[in-house]
Structures are given as C-alpha cells and as structure tokens.
C-alpha cells in the first residue's frame, strides 16, 4: 500500500509541477482578460467547432477572455389552463355524502407549533405527526355534524359484528406490546427511585456520624473543664453524656445485631440455603439446576420396574419416579394407556 500511495503522490506531484510551469508561462506572456463572460444569445447554435467559434467572434458575440458553456436550465412544464380544464372535466358533481371530503385551513393546524420552529416541522417526527393529528381532529370536528345531518352513522351498534381491518390476533399483539412498554417504563421508574433513596440513605449516615463526633467532643470539653476546676458538677453532664453514649452504644450494638440478622435473612431462605438473585432464578428455571448430569438418563433396575409395572386400577398410570426423567413418565403412561379399555372412544 505504501508503495502505491507513494507512486500516486509522485504522479500527482508531477502534474502539479506541470501546472505550475504552465502558470509561470502564462504569467510571462499574459492574455488580456475581461471580467465579463458572455454566452451566445441563441441556444440553438452550438459552439463546438473552431470555425463556429471564429464566426461567433467575428460577429462580436465573443469577447476575449474565458468563455464557459453553461448547462441549459431545464424548463418545467406548468400548463395551468389545461390543468383547470382537466379539473373541471374530472370533477365528480355529486352531493357531499358521496364525496366525504373536508378541507381544513393549514394555519389552524399550526397554531400549536411556535413559528420559530416551523422549518423543523418536516424533520421532527413528533411535531409532524402531531400536525397531521391536529388536521384530522379538526376535520372530524367539522365532519361529524355534517354526517349527522345526512343521517350517516359514525358508531356501529354494539350488536353489529363485522370483520375489522386488523384481526383480533393482531390487536392482541398490539395490546401486549403496549403493556410491555408500559411495564418497562414502570420498572425503570422504580429503579430510579430506589437509586435516589440509596443516595439519601448515605447522606443520613454521614449526618449521624457527624453528630456522634460532636457529642464526643462535647464530653471531652466537659472533662477538660472539670479537670481545670471550672465546674463542680461534672457528674451530671458525664452521666448525661454517658447515658447518651451508652444508649447510643447499646443502640449501635442492637442496630448491628439487627443488621447482621437482616443480612442473614437476606442471604438465606427457609431451608438455610443462599437466596438466589432474580437472574439466577430465571436461569435455573430455563436450564435446570442441580443434580448430577452424567449418566442421569441411563436405565436402572428401578426405572425398568417402574416402566413395566402392571397398572393396578390407576387411571393416571404408574407413579412417576422421583429421579426418573420426563420421558420415562410418558413411557409408563403410554404403557398404562395401552391396557385401558377403548370404550371411551
């Protein structure tokens, strides 16, 4: 690759040099330039050949300087008269209930939107759709009384059953989709609230620690003062502080106990097993959990006996073995069904 790019660079550099040379030559013997650029008036005349160019120059249609041929601008057809005539021919001259058309002024649909963001109407999905909705709403508001006037119903009676454009199955899907979206949003909100609560909890903790420190400081000060002999009645304060501290200590201890208990409870369920997270539970449900995987599907003496045991008036078939797999259950059932009288059919 490097080699290639170098080659390209070389070639382009060469070209650049050539161009530079040309420019220098031009600078040495300059051509008189006119800022005006004119094209020939007639579009029909093509100015391709030299002869024609010369002729055009002779006619003074060309001035010295750079002449650029501009691409012809396309003319777009717009025959208003014929369009009007066609419209008149096409017009369906019938009463309104045959046509059911309603025209709504565009300005009334745009009232909701601020004028400054008018340009963004096409690109902004939400705004655009609300614009259409507004138009439809307005037209319905105009149209319903009109329909009533002509005795056309807009609501079907409840006992009128007919095929809908979308099947019930599809509508069920739509509803499920809506519900799942709603549930997802609720879940998110819950998580967010929990997060906020956690933040609050931490702040409270910090405040409590601060209070504890303050109390300790006060006690220390009181002791100092007593030592200096400023105060006589240290006992009361100490007692007070002691009480407070003691209580707090007790509380703390109790709290710690509770916390530990709570943690324990969180970790273990009724059987003393570690509690699983939701994700793990789901995975267990999906893939199965525990037990030996190897050789679990082998036949054993018990399983054999279970499968070929003669059923004794047991409608449900043989008892399903505790450890035997699902297919074994079915096997025994099959066997049981074989011996059943076929009177039910």
């Amino acid at each position: 690759m490097k080699f290639k790019t170098q080659e390209i660079k070389k070639s382009i550099l060469k070209n650049l040099k050539l161009i530079q040379q040309e420019v220098e030559e031009q600078a040495k013997n300059p051509i008189p330039k006119d800022s005006e650029q004119e094209e020939s008036d007639d579009d029909e005349q093509s100015l391709d050949s030299d002869q024609e160019l010369q002729l055009a120059f002779a006619r003074k249609q060309l001035t010295p300087g750079l002449n650029i041929e501009l691409p012809a601008t396309k003319e777009f057809v717009y025959d208003k008269e014929r369009l009007e005539r066609k419209y008149k021919d096409l017009y369906l001259n019938m009463e309104w209930p045959e046509r059911l058309d309603i025209t709504v002024p565009k300005s009334e649909c745009q009232v909701v939107l601020p004028e400054t963001e008018k340009s963004g109407l096409v690109d902004n999905d939400f705004k655009r759709e609300s614009f259409f909705l507004k138009q439809a709403e307005l037209s319905v508001r105009l149209g319903l009384p009109k329909l009533e006037n002509f005795g056309i119903k807009t609501k079907r009676p409840e006992d009128y059953f007919a095929e809908m454009a979308k099947s019930d199955e599809h509508m069920k899907k739509v509803r499920e989709n809506l519900l799942s979206k709603h549930a997802e949003q609720e879940r998110r909100e819950k998580v967010r609230k929990l997060r906020e609560l956690k933040k609050m909890g931490k702040q409270i903790q910090i405040e409590n620690e601060k209070k504890k420190l303050d109390a300790k400081k006060k006690l220390k000060d009181a002791v100092k003062k007593y030592k200096k002999g400023d105060k006589d009645s240290l006992e009361i304060e100490i007692e007070e502080e002691d009480e407070k501290l003691g209580k707090r200590k007790l509380n703390d201890e109790l709290d710690g106990h509770k916390k530990a208990k709570r943690e324990k409870r969180d970790e273990t369920d009724a059987k003393g097993l570690k509690k699983k997270g939701k994700k793990q539970e789901y995975k267990d449900k999906k893939y199965g959990f525990g037990g030996r995987k190897k050789r679990s599907k082998y036949n054993t003496a018990d399983s054999y006996a279970e499968a070929y045991k003669t059923p004794v008036n047991n409608k449900k078939g043989g008892k399903s073995g505790g450890k035997s797999g699902g297919f074994r259950k079915n096997a025994s059932k099959k066997f049981a069904n074989k011996n059943k009288p076929k009177s039910k059919r």
Partner: peptide, 21 residues
C-alpha cells in the same frame, strides 16, 4: 383499528386549493 370496508372521511389541507395541480 377500523371496520373492513367502512367509508373514510377525506381530510385535506387548504393548500390543496391553492394551485391548479
């Protein structure tokens, strides 16, 4: 959802009346 084959109201902008096309 709507009935299959029910008649629609046809709502237009007033810009539809602005030009012949």
């Amino acid at each position: 959802n709507c009935l299959k084959g029910s008649r629609p109201l046809l709502a237009f902008n007033d810009e539809f009346d602005s030009e012949p096309h």
